[in-house]
Design a protein around this nucleic acid. Structure first.
Lengths: 166, 166
DNA sequence: ATTAAATTCCCCACTTTTCCCCACTCATCC
DNA sequence: GGATGAGTGGGGAAAAGTGGGGAATTTAAT
């Protein structure tokens, strides 16, 4: 599971060091390489190889009948590149992908559970503003769902025999 | 279950000692690390690992298709960091999280049952004022519910075996 | 086919941060 | 009043992030 937020830099050779926590996140999987492709809202998405192939496998072909489905599939697959990780834990992202994400040097790396997102920090800020995301509102819904989960657990009543004397 | 209110300090290295009662609160769980993320109303939220992962697991993926859903998910997951607890019971909160909570040195720690909240004391005061929290009103609802709950105790409950897996 | 230019990738090195350990102070509890 | 445990402080080893040299491979051109 990928979490966390990091600010890293592309070096002069265009290499990007993935946060070590994210490299560790896939112990036992094929993490000697990652797959990058075009992400959502203008970022670059990074997947572990097994997750990427699972996503592809599970994509519903019937959606291809819709024009949107095919266009998406074509774009997503063709932007995807398998990238080896060097001994320092770095990947070399194709320049064309960096361009569509407006990335030059500073990079914001987001862990989003099943995948990783790579943003130009300014573009991400702009996206947050433009989309008028209301974090508090989402958090209240999310957290209160967690509380409901707890209530269920605690509703298990005491044994009948325990009530006799109370 | 987390309860209690404490005032602690960040040391020069940005480390925060969690109240020992809160560390003890999770005996038997994986409390060698906690997960911190962005909380509600400007605080930092701290979760035991198992609770955090339960929150994530229970998130409804269909919400990702809604713009707000994805934006919240992205924010919540990417602000989340797994933090090891050192031998003194301290965690090292990332500076970026401290920044969004306006925390420099003094810290207010609140136990909120399923999670812990970390506040800048002044910001919490301000939040209470701004949000015009009416404690008494909430308390009356809460207390009267507790009384009804106590009455329920005298009703014959369903068999435990019917409820275990719910 | 041979050479030159460019790219990839492996290794070494430096700087900063993280994390593990030891130590001190203060409050609480026998 | 000593002992225990909690909160705070700081040093040093280890790891992470960053930068750069140079061999090997590829691409293009002569």
């Amino acid at each position: 599971m990928f979490t966390g937020r990091y600010t890293h830099k592309l070096d002069a050779k265009g290499r990007l060091a993935l946060p070590s926590k994210m490299r560790e996140a896939g112990i036992g999987l094929q993490y000697s390489q990652f797959v990058v492709s075009k992400g959502i809202d203008g970022c670059i998405a990074v997947f572990p190889v097994d997750k990427f192939e699972k996503f592809i496998d599970e994509f519903d072909p019937s959606e291809l009948e819709m024009e949107q489905g095919l266009n998406f599939y074509r774009e997503f697959a063709s932007w995807a590149h398998y990238l080896p990780v060097d001994n320092q834990g770095r990947i070399n992202i194709p320049q064309t992908l960096l361009d569509i994400a407006s990335i030059d040097s500073d990079v914001l790396i987001l862990g989003v559970v099943d995948w990783i997102e790579i943003w130009n920090p300014d573009e991400y800020e702009k996206h947050l503003k433009d989309s008028k995301v209301n974090y508090n509102k989402g958090a209240k819904t999310f957290f209160s769902a967690a509380i409901r989960g707890k209530r269920k657990k605690y509703e298990i009543p005491p044994k009948r025999s325990d009530l006799e004397d109370s």
